[in-house]
């Protein structure tokens, strides 16, 4: 049984068809990446899975149970956690309060404290800024906070929407290293990226999505080597 299984999912915004029957699956322990250009339907896929968008046709199953049409907070409570595009930091709250909100649905105080410590070890920069207003952090720090906050929800599956968006290359490196480390420590990751070369380096498997359809799928290494992908997404000639 796959951790996440999407079958024939179609979603439209009014008259515009954003997804036309995509299928993908994420197995326990994997990093799976979904790459593609602007408007291909990457974010739409994540938003539909986490319940933020009205469900269309098709099925979405998490741990074997259908979550299609479930309220977004219930999906988050079942430990499928979405870090939305643009990070979704609570700008006027302190960094500490942002982290506390990550643990909003949990009640195991001791374990939360341990997880908080783990997150702060993962992101030393966040620890330095605990009392600061979150909106005053740099873009990279905000992304770290967004990931850290999501980790406090103890995700079984962590869905990251464009974590590299608008960040300096060096920070992107750091973020991707952390993503790999989180994965090694047992969290499954579904990663949506425009930065295809970075995403293919860290992922186990990859899907290429174009205008609402999955075009290519396979092991990340193979895709990184394939001519079609290299031409379209990796800037090779």
């Amino acid at each position: 049984m796959s951790l996440l299984a999407i079958k024939d999912l179609s979603v439209s915004y009014g008259a515009i068809q954003a997804l036309s029957g995509i299928s993908l699956h994420v197995e326990d322990g994997e990093i799976v990446t979904l790459i593609g250009g602007n408007g291909a339907g990457k974010s739409t896929t994540l938003r539909t899975v986490s319940g933020l968008l009205k469900p269309g046709q098709g099925s979405v199953e998490f741990e074997g149970k259908s979550i299609h049409g479930t309220a977004p907070h219930r999906i988050a409570q079942s430990r499928l956690v979405h870090v939305p595009e643009g990070r979704g930091i609570f700008a006027n709250l302190s960094v500490e309060e942002n982290l506390m909100l990550g643990a909003f649905s949990r009640h195991d105080a001791d374990q939360i404290a341990a997880d908080r410590e783990r997150v702060l070890t993962l992101f030393p920069r966040v620890r330095e800024r605990l009392r600061q207003q979150a909106g005053t952090l740099s873009g990279g720090e905000q992304q770290m906070l967004a990931i850290g906050r999501a980790l406090l929800a103890r995700p079984k599956l962590l869905m990251l929407d464009e974590p590299s968006l608008g960040l300096a290359p060096q920070i992107v490196q750091t973020i991707f290293q952390v993503i790999q480390q989180i994965n090694r420590e047992g969290t499954t990751i579904l990663l949506v990226e425009q930065n295809a070369s970075m995403a293919l380096q860290v992922a186990h498997r990859a899907y290429v999505i174009e205008v609402g359809r999955i075009q290519i799928e396979g092991p990340a290494r193979e895709l990184a080597a394939s001519d079609a992908v290299r031409k379209a997404y990796l800037g090779a000639h």
Binding site: H73, A76, S105, R149, A150
Partner: peptide
């Protein structure tokens, strides 16, 4: 408190609040 922070999170960003499991 936690419920109050949840309210503030609704003000700040409804989508992120939902992603944290807050029933907005």
């Amino acid at each position: 408190s936690s419920p109050g922070r949840a309210m503030i999170s609704v003000r700040e960003d409804e989508i992120a609040a939902q992603a944290m499991g807050v029933d907005i």
